[in-house]
């Protein structure tokens, strides 16, 4: 089962510079396990030690954010495409505001 996974610039050190790699798996978790077998370390950049999707990345299946699908248990089918992007966030820190 072939699934194309698009990798953002910041993570291409794990894919030998490749913008997209192929993987397989019935769920997103299985796909990431499969990718990690060939691109060691990639999984750890996407999933926390607690097994949750990392706050610093967005993962999309067929352009849908998996946070609005089934998260890491999102089902995958042959021909699906997966995109990984760095999430972009920031803003004033409430604790800094409180200190004045």
């Amino acid at each position: 089962m072939a699934i194309e996974v698009r990798i953002p610039t910041i993570l291409r050190s794990y894919t030998g510079g490749e913008k997209a790699v192929q993987g397989s798996g019935a769920t997103l978790t299985a796909l990431l396990d499969d990718l990690d077998s060939r691109h060691s370390g990639l999984r750890g950049r996407l999933i926390t030690d607690d097994g949750a999707l990392h706050r610093f990345v967005n993962v999309y299946v067929n352009d849908e954010d998996v946070r609005f699908l089934g998260g890491l248990e999102t089902q995958l089918s042959d021909g699906d495409n997966v995109t990984v992007l760095p999430a972009v966030a920031g803003g004033a820190d409430p604790a800094e505001i409180a200190r004045g």
Binding site: Y60, D65, A87, V88, A89
Partner: peptide, 16 residues
């Protein structure tokens, strides 16, 4: 998407 006085995050669909 945070719509907050103390933070921002790009809407994920728009960012894609």
């Amino acid at each position: 998407t945070e719509r907050s006085p103390t933070g921002f995050e790009f809407d994920s669909a728009q960012w894609l």
